[in-house]
């Protein structure tokens, strides 16, 4: 796909994100492949950076069967996290400007060293500084939350906001921790971190390979969101949203 077209589509995605207005899937009009999707993502996020945000990390999508089934796709993808996406733990999230946001509980990693390309699981874990309970708020910029793989990649893998709980030492195994999402004190999702590729550390190996293949890296000091073990749940005004992960603690926010 020509650069001028990719630039145009990136601005279309960025405008939809800024104005909270759903758009038609790009692939209904343009024949895009996965590489095109990642290039549109890069260009769209670059517009955020020009407005003063900075990159804080990376997120993974479709790392669990539950998420693949919910969205009908079967390949791990990655998106870019920027400073404007951060919501304080215990803070509020205004719904104004969002389209159809959903929340999911996740495990977040803080990196101590760079990672790029093929890496062993122990090697990947040795690069981790800390681990935390987190919430990702996703919000597809496409009508009805429907998309193909190039569409969702172009749309920065539906990334919208994230909430990070307190960082914990990564020295105990987090391969099978109970995870729970609650709305107003009632469970709306219950699962285990084992649903993330059998062990969430495998998702870190996967992102190292994925970024390495694109000539990029997981940077020291950056945050990695490993993906959700369960289907995301839609948000409504006034809701209190709480994620808990066994032993790692909790993260929460209120929807306004």
């Amino acid at each position: 796909m020509k650069n001028s077209v990719l630039t145009k589509l990136a601005s279309r995605i960025d405008d939809a994100t800024r104005h909270g207005k759903a758009i038609q899937q790009l692939t209904l009009t343009y024949k895009l492949d996965i590489d095109d999707g990642y290039e549109i993502q890069r260009l769209a996020v670059a517009r955020r950076l020009l407005r003063g945000e900075h990159t804080i990390g990376t997120k993974l999508g479709f790392t669990s069967r539950a998420k693949m089934q919910q969205m009908g796709l079967d390949q791990i993808i990655c998106g870019r996290l920027t400073s404007g996406m951060l919501v304080d733990d215990g803070g509020t999230l205004p719904l104004a400007g969002l389209i159809h946001p959903r929340a999911e509980p996740e495990i977040a990693l803080l990196m101590k060293h760079d990672l790029s390309g093929p890496v062993t699981l122990p090697g990947a874990m040795a690069a981790v500084e800390a681990v935390a309970c987190a919430i990702e708020i996703i919000d597809s910029r496409y009508q009805n939350f429907k998309f193909t793989l190039p569409d969702v990649i172009a749309d920065n893998t539906s990334c919208c906001r994230l909430v990070l709980g307190g960082w914990q030492r990564p020295d105990s195994d987090f391969g099978n921790l109970g995870m729970m999402l609650q709305f107003n004190g009632r469970p709306v999702g219950i699962g285990s971190s084992a649903a993330i590729m059998g062990h969430p550390a495998r998702a870190l190996v996967a992102i190292s390979q994925l970024l390495g293949a694109q000539g990029r890296k997981v940077k020291a000091g950056s945050v990695v969101m490993l993906g959700s073990p369960m289907a995301a749940q839609p948000l409504a005004p006034g809701m209190h949203v709480l994620a808990e992960v066994e032993r790692l603690g909790r993260a929460e926010f209120t929807v306004r």
Binding site: N176, L177, G178, M179, S192, A194, G198, R247
Partner: peptide, 12 residues
């Protein structure tokens, strides 16, 4: 909050 996973041939 205990996590639980049933595995079959290594798959959760």
């Amino acid at each position: 909050l205990c996590g639980a996973v049933v595995e079959h041939k290594g798959e959760p």
